[in-house]
Nucleic acid binder design. Sequence first.
DNA 1: CTGAAAGCGCTTACAG
DNA 2: CTGAAAGCGCTTACAG
Lengths: 364, 364
Amino acid sequence: MAIKPKATIADVARLAGVSTATAGRVLGGYGYTSGSKKDQVMKAAEKLGYRPNALARSLITGKTRTIGVVAGDIRNPFYAFVLRGISNVAEKEGFGLLITNSDEDLQQETRAVDLLVEKQVDGLIVSPCDTRDAAHLRALHASGIPLVLIDRAVEALEVDRVGTANVAAARDAVQRLIQTGHRRIGLIAELVEEAEGGVASFIARAQAGEPVESAALYPSWQRLLGYVQAHLVARVPLDPALVRRAGEYSAQAAEHACLSLLSAENRPTALFTTDGTMSEGAMAAIAKLGLTIPGQLSMIGFDDLDWMAFLPPGITTVAQPRMAMGEAATRMLLEQIAGAEIPPRTLLMPAQLIERGSVGKPAA
Amino acid sequence: MAIKPKATIADVARLAGVSTATAGRVLGGYGYTSGSKKDQVMKAAEKLGYRPNALARSLITGKTRTIGVVAGDIRNPFYAFVLRGISNVAEKEGFGLLITNSDEDLQQETRAVDLLVEKQVDGLIVSPCDTRDAAHLRALHASGIPLVLIDRAVEALEVDRVGTANVAAARDAVQRLIQTGHRRIGLIAELVEEAEGGVASFIARAQAGEPVESAALYPSWQRLLGYVQAHLVARVPLDPALVRRAGEYSAQAAEHACLSLLSAENRPTALFTTDGTMSEGAMAAIAKLGLTIPGQLSMIGFDDLDWMAFLPPGITTVAQPRMAMGEAATRMLLEQIAGAEIPPRTLLMPAQLIERGSVGKPAA
DNA sequence: CTGAAAGCGCTTACAG
DNA sequence: CTGAAAGCGCTTACAG
């Protein structure tokens, strides 16, 4: 295990018989150097196995070519795919990726941001766990560090953001169910933070056409809004009892909510779920109840999870462009890092309804 | 967006009326300082909003408190869970995590390692894509950088490693199938790199009891070995035609191999798959063929994927302790980083057979 | 085009 | 316990 002492620029310069400045210029690829000196330096560097120390460079330039990400939980396929998108463009541009999980917990998110800032990342991509309580993100932005939000927005924090066009995505899905003849459509949604007055009040306001500020809404609330709008547009009466709140980000909670919804009398003929985790929980409930799809229940899920393609009869679902979202967010961040003075952009990407076999006419 | 200039230790020291050395001592938490000076420094730091610059510290100490990981593909649940395990202990110990994907490509893996080394990570965890061709890893280890391998080993590279006890895991699963009465058990395995002489020769050698060097084998070959051993122990004749090679790490390839296996005459009564991706592809093939489980076909999968729990009748599967593997690997790495002089360890973690409803008696 | 010098923001011996 | 000084490995003006 001979640990070879690392060669520095000074070592290379000495061997090449030039100044450290010159050695630095050729090794670092900046400034001008004559061909002959360049050769000497390169040869010396090779001989010594010189490897640049990015730390020293970063200390001077103030740039680390590293971006920090705080995701909810890397195990969740949504984040895993977003992360891969981020990684794709970061890697292509030679940026490193410092990844953290918040577990959707504000304290952990704050600690994660602190860690990333301390490590001097050039910018951050964060999926904020709270759409209001985000002092750490406001401070971050105020300090001038490039920041882009993903999936969720933060109230009164004007920064670059990429998300899914949730309202439209949900509206389209529910519309498809209505078109197929469904009139009683169940909804299983996360809806963690209670909106003012709760779900019933939210639905009432949305139905009354009251302007619901949808930008800073959590995605599941936005999707609920799309669900309401689809009913409104089609003039289909909406039974609030069909809207079930899981209240937390877990398949178990979704399964529980779904079991209760589908066991109630006068159960819905179709079901819409507002994210991958809800879809998974709903699927578990449906399997437990032994309901056939689409015979006894039609269904449209959210996010294109692996099993949706092969679980008979194939689950129709709303696919978010997860990787593309990560890629877009990273490009925005890189533009900020490059110093572009761009007013805050909001990029809402369209989801795609992938039609498979889980939607049929309601049982007569 | 007033970008406040960041306060340095010198700024704090000036305001507190002490030397930078003293300010550094209290802010950095090293050395001794009297209570009164400590207070002055803390107050000044607070007032200036001082945030340490980890870069400068690292340049001196030679430690970045960052570990680098090269995974195959973060989108794959196997890696996602391993990564989460790594993140768990890294976060607890205050280490940052630089994550890269190799896409199981040697060139990308090499570039990833280079990037991580340049960024001066304190150590690396890598899931090597090639068990022999790994000059970059050998060089890495020779240079004394802490390294731990995960999931796969590298021939003649003695370093800490954590993996699954693959041979035993596969043997147990196949044994369960044999116990239940199955005599024709299909195998869908990745088996990317052809072993010497191919699958048939490998099986023959394993059957002959020839010592097959199993440590540096790819996991899927190890699992094939367990499959052979289970037959051997139970004295059940093994039909090599039932062993199908996907040849690449994709669900499509697995589906294709499985379709061909299950459409052949005299098809197996049970199926074993050697990883999550193979399980997914096999499931797609089974669904396409409309085979009932376990009525027409029994099955044991690998890795506990979400859908295995709710896809009727519940898929019996071999669950690798993915998160625990990531956690163990990180603890090993941290020990190396802490300077422990430990001879290379190989930690093989047991997989768990999770019994659900997909194994039944073979159709009479 | 090239070199001597200063400096990025810290930590580390070394005196006192 | 505290400070002056040197230095980590680079890059950056500034002369020449």
